[in-house]
Simulated assay, not measured.
Amino acid sequence: MIDIGAFLKDRLKKPLPGDVAHQQMMAQPIGERFNMKYDKPPKKGAVMIALYPDEGKIYFPLMQRPPYQGVHGGQVSLPGGKKEDADSNLIETAIRETYEEIGVTIADNEVIGTLSDLNVTASNFIVRPVISILKSKPEFIRDPREVEHIFKAEVEHLIHPETLQVTELTVAERVRLKAPFFDIEEKVVWGATAMILSEFVEILKEHYT
Rank of each mutant, 00 (worst) to 15 (best):
E55G: 03
Y52F: 12
K9I: 00
G31N: 11
K178V: 09
M1N: 05
N89A: 11
I196N: 03
R128M: 14
I141Y: 15
K187S: 01
L169E: 13
E97M: 10
I141G: 13
F34Q: 03
T170I: 15
I91A: 11
G5S: 09
K57N: 06
L118E: 02
P180F: 09
H149S: 01
G80F: 13
D3A: 09
P79A: 12
V104M: 12
S116T: 08
F200G: 01
Q69T: 11
R176Y: 09
I4Y: 12
P161K: 12
F151G: 00
N124T: 01
Y208C: 01
K13G: 07
K135V: 03
K37E: 12
P41V: 04
H72G: 06
P161Y: 11
A6R: 12
D54Q: 10
I126S: 14
G56D: 02
H149F: 06
P41T: 05
F60R: 02
R96Q: 12
I203L: 08
K178I: 09
Y68F: 06
K83G: 07
R128I: 10
D3P: 03
N89C: 14
E162C: 05
E100W: 14
L177M: 05
L177R: 02
E185W: 08
F60V: 00
P79Q: 13
P42D: 04
P41R: 10
P17I: 09
E92N: 04
V189M: 07
K13A: 14
T193C: 10
F182V: 11
I196F: 06
Y38V: 02
P53E: 07
I184A: 08
I126Q: 06
V111Q: 07
I2Q: 15
I106V: 15
Y208H: 03
P180V: 04
I159G: 02
I196G: 03
M1T: 02
Q64V: 01
Q165A: 13
D183V: 00
Q24P: 00
L134Q: 07
T167I: 05
E202G: 00
N109M: 15
M63L: 15
E156K: 06
L204S: 01
K9M: 00
L169I: 07
Y68L: 00
R33A: 15
I141A: 14
N124A: 08
V130K: 11
K135Y: 15
I91C: 11
N89D: 15
L90T: 04
V166D: 00
I91L: 10
I95E: 05
R176N: 07
E146F: 12
Y208Q: 01
E154N: 03
A46P: 03
E202M: 09
R128F: 09
E32M: 12
V175L: 11
D85C: 07
T98N: 14
A172P: 00
G74D: 02
Q23S: 14
P66M: 05
I2K: 15
E139G: 01
E202P: 01
E206T: 05
E84Q: 13
P161W: 10
L90V: 03
P29Y: 14
P67H: 13
Q28L: 14
E97V: 02
P180D: 04
T105E: 06
R96I: 03
G103N: 13
K137D: 04
H149Q: 01
L169T: 09
E100S: 14
G191F: 09
E100V: 12
Q24Y: 06
P53G: 13
L158P: 01
E199C: 08
E84A: 13
A27N: 03
P129L: 14
E32Q: 14
Y68P: 00
Q165I: 06
